[in-house]
């Protein structure tokens, strides 16, 4: 190979790099196919009525309003459980934790928690929240289950944000006689919280699209009313899509509704993602100034 003429080497490289471009192209194509299919077939059914009314006539007509509201509620609950605990854990790991075996155990647990299958979180939610805590299948049990599932994501995102605060900020404050908590509170958190929130939004966007953890902890097939308390069941967009595409008695008839639900779900998830990206961009700009 060492003495091979330049042209063969060059040819190999040209083919090789084209193959890599092809791989990238396939990934982009997948994304285009996904979006094209959902948008082209789902857009027609979207109307004000579709977004603001409940399903009618055995879910063959009407809108998906209760599912939108349910997903909104459960995501808010997830945030309430996951964000403070995730931030606290990240603060401990980045600011207080010594380099010890226990710290390594905590880090290992976080990585493993994020690898636990979502259906296993569902089982855990049934065993702990629904049965052991006796909450029954309800909004609260689903929120707690999703909160636990998003915890590792929130921790990782928050720690990234804490890491990006320069050490000198902490040292300056400590040198002036502030205690560690004082310097964290006044000199670290104000700079880290926006970044923490950005990462957290990305995690919540994923939680909003999850189905398996809520299947048995609180999501309902069909409810004619909106949930009024934490102990009510709720409809959710991802579960509704699952029902409409596999469990409904007239699957072909409700296919447009399924497409519409998929579209609303995707748009919701991407609006959340987009807001996180915009927020991150704005913050970066502000810090540079």
């Amino acid at each position: 190979m060492k003495y091979s003429p330049f042209s063969i080497k060059h040819l190999q490289q040209t083919f090789g790099f084209h193959f890599l471009r092809f791989c990238m192209g396939v990934v982009i194509l997948i994304l285009i196919v996904v979006f094209h299919d959902i948008f082209s077939k789902g857009f027609g059914i979207i109307s004000w009525e579709f977004l603001t009314t409940a399903p009618r006539k055995g879910m063959t007509e009407g809108g998906i309003y209760p599912a939108i509201v349910g997903t909104f509620y459960v995501t808010v609950l997830t945030t309430i459980f996951s964000v403070p605990l995730g931030m606290g854990c990240a603060i401990y790991l980045n600011e207080y934790a010594p380099d010890s075996k226990l710290t390594r155990l905590i880090r290992m647990s976080i990585r493993n928690l994020s690898g636990v299958p979502s259906i296993v979180y569902g089982l855990f939610g049934v065993a702990l929240f629904v049965e052991l805590f006796n909450l029954g299948t309800c909004l609260l049990a689903s929120g707690l289950t999703l909160g636990l599932m998003t915890l590792p994501w929130t921790i990782t995102a928050s720690e990234e944000a804490l890491k990006s605060v320069p050490r000198s900020y902490r040292e300056g404050s400590l040198a002036l006689g502030a205690t560690q908590w004082q310097s964290i509170r006044t000199n670290v958190l104000p700079y880290a919280v926006p970044g923490m929130l950005t990462g957290t939004i990305l995690g919540l966007a994923r939680a909003a699209g999850e189905t398996a953890p809520i299947l048995f902890t609180g999501a309902a097939f069909y409810l004619p009313f909106l949930p009024e308390s934490l102990s009510d069941q709720f409809m959710a967009l991802p579960y509704h899509l699952y029902i409409m595409s596999t469990q409904h008695h007239a699957i072909m008839q409700v296919r447009p509704i399924a497409y519409g639900t998929a579209l609303v779900l995707i748009v919701l998830v991407f609006l959340l993602n987009l807001s996180a990206v915009v927020l991150r961009y704005q913050l970066r700009k502000r810090y540079r100034e």
């Binding site: 996904v34 299919d37 994923r206 595409s245 995707i266 998830v269």
Partner: peptide, 14 residues
């Protein structure tokens, strides 16, 4: 970021 239930849906229809 695409929810798994949407991917599953595309498995059925596409």
């Amino acid at each position: 970021g695409i929810p798994s239930v949407v991917i599953g849906f595309l498995g059925i229809v596409l």
